[in-house]
Write a protein that binds this DNA or RNA. Structure first.
Lengths: 206, 206
DNA sequence: TCCATTTACTACACAACTGTAGCATTCTGG
DNA sequence: CCAGAATGCTACAGTTGTGTAGTAAATGGA
């Protein structure tokens, strides 16, 4: 065994070469998997590199820094979530009563969550552990959703309800029950949730 | 200037000596301040030492490691929160209707939050960023509170409401509106919240 | 086959943090 | 004043992560 053979033996074999676009997607998938498994406070360039089986310069070749990577992940995930949300909501039921809407929306949203749990878990755990740039972005998104929900409530319920507070309540409940469904879908079934929602909302209608 | 003078010049002046019990309390206060300002993911022995103006061995002289310190902080904060909560809730109103209870509880809870915001902010931001041991403890506490709320609901509302789901909803709403009040107390006033709560709960009563 | 391009790895410097043995300083009582 | 006890600091070793210059390997086209 010569010295060059000894030296060559020690060098880690190269990971398969991958076009940049595909590599970026792979890195984003890895980041999402880490966030889902370990939480936002465990995400790092080093962790992502290890998850994929490449070295850090490869990650830096695709993204300038962690912030940029997380921004790209957010872009991608947001697009996925919005697509799923619009597919799930009964937007064709324009003239229906709130109770009918709820009876159709709850099972659809329930199925949506379970069809892509990783996406929704990452979104619904966007609490204080997220990097600051991510948190600001998510807060902005939540503000927009809040305004939309507030408009819907204003047109559906009597005027003696505070629409802004109700919108906050609806968002908080959707997020909380989303987390419960993802954690225990057999216990928090679509049927059970729909029944309760119908009963409570029904009591608020004229 | 002799060599010993030069050496003495370079040594950092000692922080004031403090009895152990007082030091522990001071370190816990510092930890709470860091969590409030920077979040759970920024808490570390080093950060606490810097916050107080001592070196790390001083912190390690008081607590074995970060986990033990955070456990002690949790014990202390939990005791504070429970004391404040029991002082705020109208426990003397045993025979009152749910609407009356709410009308008295909301302003009291509102004032409680603002009387000690740091304590409540640390509790209400106990999301995914917390160290695992803390998260498990908080989850256990939440489960107990949930069971208590579920019992109260079972006795106050008609049987066609799902008490478990409602308990989850109440907890989610209390936490969410707690965060809103801490963030913007002038916008989310006690009066406004009480009015909305009265209207909604009133609609559920026989 | 050879060469140029593209993609991947190594080794390094640096920063931040954990944990501790040994040493230093401060304070109080005799 | 001095000695001892109690509390505080320094320097060190180790770990983990960031970021990068230089080198290596792989691939495809001529």
């Amino acid at each position: 065994m010569t010295a060059s053979e000894t030296t060559a033996r020690k060098r880690r074999p190269y990971a398969a070469r991958v076009p940049m676009a595909q590599r970026r997607e792979q890195l984003l998938d890895a980041a999402l998997a880490i966030i889902d498994r370990d939480g936002y406070d465990r995400i790092s360039i080093d962790a992502i590199a290890k998850e994929v089986g490449v070295t850090r310069p490869v990650v830096y070749g695709a993204f300038d820094d962690l912030g940029q990577l997380l921004g790209a992940l957010l872009d991608r995930q947001q697009e996925r979530a919005i697509t799923q949300l619009y597919a799930a909501l009964p937007l064709d039921a324009v003239g229906s009563s709130p109770v009918e809407l709820v009876e159709r929306a709850v099972p659809a949203l329930h199925a949506m969550l379970l069809a892509d749990p990783m996406t929704w878990r990452a979104i619904l755990q966007s609490g204080s552990g997220v990097p600051e740039a991510v948190g600001r972005r998510v807060d902005g998104d939540r503000t927009r959703v809040l305004a939309t929900v507030e408009l819907m409530i204003s047109s559906a319920l009597p005027q003696d309800y505070d629409a802004e507070l109700l919108a906050h309540a609806v968002i908080a409940l959707l997020e909380h029950f989303g987390r419960l469904v993802l954690a225990d879908p057999e216990h928090f079934t679509a049927e059970r949730l729909a029944t309760s929602a119908r009963t409570m909302i029904g009591a608020w209608l004229p």
